[in-house]
Design a protein around this nucleic acid. Structure first.
Lengths: 218, 218
DNA sequence: CGGGAAATCAGGTAGCGCCCCGATGGCGAG
DNA sequence: CTCGCCATCGGGGCGCTACCTGATTTCCCG
């Protein structure tokens, strides 16, 4: 499949001002055209498919469905569609999850507006764009893990993620037990395992972690 | 002082993409000109004065000095300079603090890009711009407090804010007591008062509140 | 001056969070 | 098939949190 002359782009971000700014930046380029906008992840998936976009620019934190989830969904439904992740946070966790979800790039909002343009072109050429310190992070992690370069992301099991989410939403162990139809002791055990895996010590640290990961909104 | 023909605007936001988007939106208007940009609050104050801007658009959460602090500082140093607060959060707390700091408007990033244009024109006419639900919030609060319409913002005392911050940073009561050179009992008491004032029940909720308020980073 | 708000500290209690221990059934990989 | 991971559940212990009542000092404001 040859590179299309004009890249059809979808922008998804819950901030209207960011969307319209991005649209102006991209539309000013002759080889790019913004064909759709979305306010949340679910809308992004829907419109990206309907408008036959070549590339989707997704904000990591959006209502209803996060950018990460949307990227994974799009990757599954239409693999040839490229995705770029847009983020406020220079976060290792987000970066890994974005790449795992099949994103072709990870661009920080704090970067220059030319970054996003470069990222779009890199993605359409089939290569990847990462902001400079992201590369450093990746290399460091690669070395740290003895060159394995895989795994380690989802240290937490699905069930543990579920429990973590409820903890960070200020539910007590008893409330979590009732909601999940399990005993308090099991909740206790899950929390223990989560704390061990993450090297943390209490619910406050877990709460901050869950917010950083985008599992819940503050 | 007559309204200037062209409004000289400063934009302050730590996200380059937001800045350049905003700049494009505003520069497209014949009566507006973006004369300076800043990445943080301190730089915003400095450049707003140096460039003799008529209006400063400040993001609430920025490094070094928040938009709220910058607005208060500008209000003091140059009262005729108008300020608009730009925020991601539909947050009552931020709204009040912005107005208290002398801002002429409060615009949500999730709003349309025409909102900010309207807000700029309203500010230069000497009136205020608030996004619709902000007005509702203000009115509701006015009624709730029996028409007092003041106070109540800083429900927490400075000391309580200090304790809250340490709680949300995952310190135990004992650690907080050591850091502040007070007894555990006092810390306990402060936490109790904070929980009562905010109507919350545990440290997890306090953590989320502290993050929403920008007291700490997740 | 008198009152209120803020900050400090004390004692007590119930419950929950955090941390050990061990155990079982299911399920997929090797 | 066996091994390991996951999810489930139990007992017991200790310290901290959450909630209560009551008290003192300081300081500001009307």
């Amino acid at each position: 499949m040859p590179t299309p002359l004009v890249t059809r782009i979808l922008i998804a971000d819950d901030h209207g001002i960011v969307r319209s700014g991005l649209k102006r930046v991209l539309d000013a380029k002759p080889d790019m055209e913004v064909v759709a906008e979305a306010e949340d992840g679910a809308e992004a998936v829907e419109k990206a498919l309907k408008e036959d976009a070549h590339l989707a620019i997704l904000d990591v934190s959006m209502p209803r469905m996060t950018g990460i989830q949307a990227a994974a969904e799009l990757q599954k439904r239409k693999p040839e569609l490229k995705t770029l992740m847009l983020s406020m946070h220079d976060s290792e966790q987000f970066l890994f999850e974005a790449l795992k979800a099949g994103a072709s790039g990870y661009v920080l909002k704090s970067g220059a507006d030319t970054d996003i343009v470069d990222a779009v072109r890199a993605a359409m050429r089939g290569s990847s764009y990462l902001y400079p310190s992201a590369v450093t992070t990746l290399v460091r992690d690669y070395v740290d893990r003895g060159g394995l370069g895989e795994e380690q992301f989802d240290v937490l099991t699905p069930r543990e993620l579920e429990v973590l989410k409820l903890i960070a939403e200020a539910n007590t162990s008893k409330e979590i037990a009732d909601k999940l139809f399990i005993s308090i002791k099991t909740v206790d055990r899950h929390r223990q395992n989560i704390l061990d895996k993450l090297g943390m010590r209490d619910r406050v640290e877990l709460t901050r972690y869950a917010i950083r990961r985008g599992l819940i909104q503050p």
